[in-house]
């Protein structure tokens, strides 16, 4: 194809997206579109499965049977969401194993928030309320993104995820209304998870790369700073409602903006964790790689068995 032909195809492609048409796997697409989607979608999938670890940590210790089944179902959903997203990414011509390889070798990233430890039960509440809350703000607009398989996966994810945040908030509410010990536990979890949750919405707009292109492809509908503001504005009243204090002395309602002003985020901490030096980065990767390696003989056995069965079936047919 000549360069001019490619430019013309690209023009038509961008026009289709601007008209809100969906792009499907076999459609022609610019290489950059493919690569950007592989990166963002696999990163999203990785976040789901690495995200299983901090919460999975509390399954055996959940304080009641009701909490235990809810937590199990939630962590299981995350496996499901990882699976939907890996499958959607596979339509772009990359296998799940290749994506795992990228995760395990550190080539691919996942959400930094999961590199923090879950040290008390209240962390299950804080993650559901804050981390899932921030994730939903990011994810809902993606139900209408330009790449069909991604949009469809996100519709399924968002539908299933609606209970996650409620579950988290309910845990927090119960603790906040409980004994002084429980309330302290809840406040401590909020103190630890608040700032990482704000960081989760990404670097500030002035340093964020890719944004313009991502807006055009509907991989992003709002800037990081706007999303962060939205998250803060919706979360502060929820904290007030259950009598917990947001750990930010500079937090103040700004009548003029109709939004909360908030304090300085420690971006050094953010970049330290992103670069692999958070409290749990090494443990999380060790757990993922370990599960994959321990499972290898199982996956191989299943394939070997399937092949034997196939051979037997063919022999019978002869």
């Amino acid at each position: 194809m000549s360069e001019e032909q490619i430019r013309s195809l690209e023009r038509q492609f961008e026009e289709r997206i601007a008209r809100d048409e969906k792009i499907e796997p076999k459609d022609w697409m610019p290489e950059k579109y493919r690569q950007t989607h592989i990166r963002q979608m696999s990163q999203h999938a990785h976040s789901e499965i690495v995200g299983m670890l901090p919460e999975g940590n509390w399954i055996t210790r959940a304080p009641s049977l009701r909490r235990k089944v809810a937590l199990l179902a939630k962590v299981q959903d995350e496996a499901g969401h990882g699976l939907y997203l890996y499958s959607a990414t596979e339509t772009l011509g990359i296998s799940r194993d290749e994506m795992y390889e990228q995760l395990h070798t550190g080539k691919a990233k996942y959400s930094s928030i999961f590199n923090y430890p879950t040290i008390t039960w209240a962390d299950m509440g804080a993650i559901g309320w804050l981390v899932d809350g921030a994730a939903i703000i990011n994810q809902v607009p993606l139900c209408n993104t330009s790449y069909g398989p991604y949009a469809r996966a996100m519709i399924r994810v968002c539908k299933e995820e609606s209970f996650h945040q409620r579950q988290g908030f309910e845990i927090m509410m119960k603790l906040a209304n409980g004994t002084p010990e429980q309330k302290d536990m809840a406040q401590d979890a909020l103190n630890r998870w608040w700032w990482p949750s704000l960081m989760m919405l990404g670097p500030t707009d002035d340093v964020s790369v890719h944004t313009e292109q991502s807006m055009k492809w509907k991989l992003k509908r709002k800037s990081n700073d706007d999303l962060r503001q939205q998250f803060i504005d919706q979360t502060v009243p929820q904290a007030d409602l259950i009598g917990l204090t947001i750990p930010d002395p500079d937090l103040k309602w700004n009548e003029e903006r109709g939004s909360y002003d908030f304090g300085e985020i420690d971006w050094d901490e953010f970049w330290q964790v992103v670069k692999g030096h958070g409290p749990m980065n090494k443990e999380r990767m060790k757990a993922r790689v370990g599960a994959w390696e321990r499972g290898e003989w199982v996956r191989d056995a299943a394939m070997a068995h399937a092949e034997k069965k196939q051979v037997r079936k063919e022999k019978q047919a002869v």
Partner: peptide, 22 residues
Amino acid sequence: MGELCGHGPSLETDIACTNISL
């Protein structure tokens, strides 16, 4: 079975084992 959630040999088996636990 719940101990295994997140540590299974594949995502699909992980989900299946969690279902049994549930």
